[in-house]
Amino acid sequence: MNAFRLAGDITHLISILVLLLKIYATKSCSGISLKTQELYAVVFLARYLDLFTDFISVYNSVMKVVFILSSVAIVWCMRRHRAVKRSYDKELDTFRHYYLVGACFVFALLVHEKFTFQEVFWAFSIYLEAVAIIPQLVLLQRSGNVDNLTGQYVFFLGAYRALYILNWIYRYFTEAKFSRWIACISGLVQTALYADFFYYYFLSWKNNAKLNLPA
């Protein structure tokens, strides 16, 4: 465990908790893509299948449970909570995310470290996490609505990406046999898509700021 990865895990968790709190506190999820949140929940469920089989550390196990619970809580809030689900942009959040799930699963069947149930699902979760932000990116391009995408959420999500890349660079130079090409390459694609999201987020935020200028 190195400081970059610990900080990356923590900023990742904070980004999820910030979003959950924002939705729960304002009882609104307008501008949030339910599809992206569903993909994130699937990512954690598919990746942490080893929760009960491989014990790595208390930290590792606790964080896996917290990631699963918090990501499922966001999906539950957006689908079940009466007040929240009324504010869901159902007619705008229309990206066919099932195609992303299917494509990532097929790709995981082709490219993985070992052809075992857990390894294929692990690779699937890595690929899916990389593309999971696409429905949110499309929704943001359509709606320009950043009401619930707080700056903190975007900041912590970006910090998570940057710190994980630093973690891989650090591990590459300090560990003899560090070979996580699947996670590294997929992580770079994920970061590039995040950068695209950030670009549209910044534009929307600037436009909203202009719109809200005192008349």
């Binding site: 465990m1 990865r5 895990d9 990742h12 990746r47 080893d50 491989d54 790595i56 590792n60 964080m63 896996k64 990631f67 692990w122 973690n167 560990e175 046999k177 560090f178 996580r180 996670a183």
Partner: peptide
Amino acid sequence: ANADSQKDEL
């Protein structure tokens, strides 16, 4: 298995 090969990253 040693930690590296295990999936020790979240």
